[in-house]
């Protein structure tokens, strides 16, 4: 558990380091996540000491958004000024995103079905 948590922090640190050195305009933790994913793909499985703290954190992910979200109280002026633009943009773009994604993926629906119905070991051909 503790080792797994340390691994997460080290990957985050590596991500932050890469961002600082390269000047990439990407959050450090996202780079850390990509590095960890690459590491897991190379390793081939997720050890329990990493899975347990990861799933514990992700189980309560929503709570972690609260402190930043409360910062909305510092932006009332901005919201008052831009609320119509914000709401219109969110509604139009969310609907468009659903349409585009669903239409692109729908032709592959049967293959996705077949894949999810096969047993995990079965698709290692």
């Amino acid at each position: 558990m503790l080792i797994g948590f340390l691994i997460l922090l080290l990957f985050q640190f590596a991500g932050e380091l890469i961002v600082v050195v390269s000047g990439l305009p990407v959050p450090g933790p996202v780079v850390g996540m990509v590095l960890l994913l690459a590491g897991l793909i190379v390793k081939g499985d997720v050890p329990d000491y990493l899975r347990i703290p990861s799933e514990a954190l992700l189980k309560h992910l929503a709570l972690l958004f609260v402190p930043a979200g409360v910062g909305l109280m510092t932006h009332f002026g901005l919201l008052q000024q831009d609320w119509l633009a914000i709401l219109t943009a969110l509604i139009i773009s969310t609907a468009l995103t659903i349409v585009v994604t669903a239409l692109i993926l729908n032709p592959s629906a049967r293959k996705l079905q077949a894949l999810s119905q096969s047993e995990p070991g079965e698709d290692d051909r």
Binding site: F5, L8, L9, F11, Q12, G15, P27, G28, P29, V30, G32, M33, V34, L36, L37, L40, V46, L50, R51, P53, S54, E55, L57, L58, L61, L63, L64, F65, V66, P67, A68
Partner: peptide, 16 residues
């Protein structure tokens, strides 16, 4: 609490 967002983001690699 906010601090844990960093390691939690890295942890998204596991379900992915």
């Amino acid at each position: 609490i906010h601090f844990l967002l960093g390691p939690a983001t890295v942890a998204l690699a596991v379900p992915l």
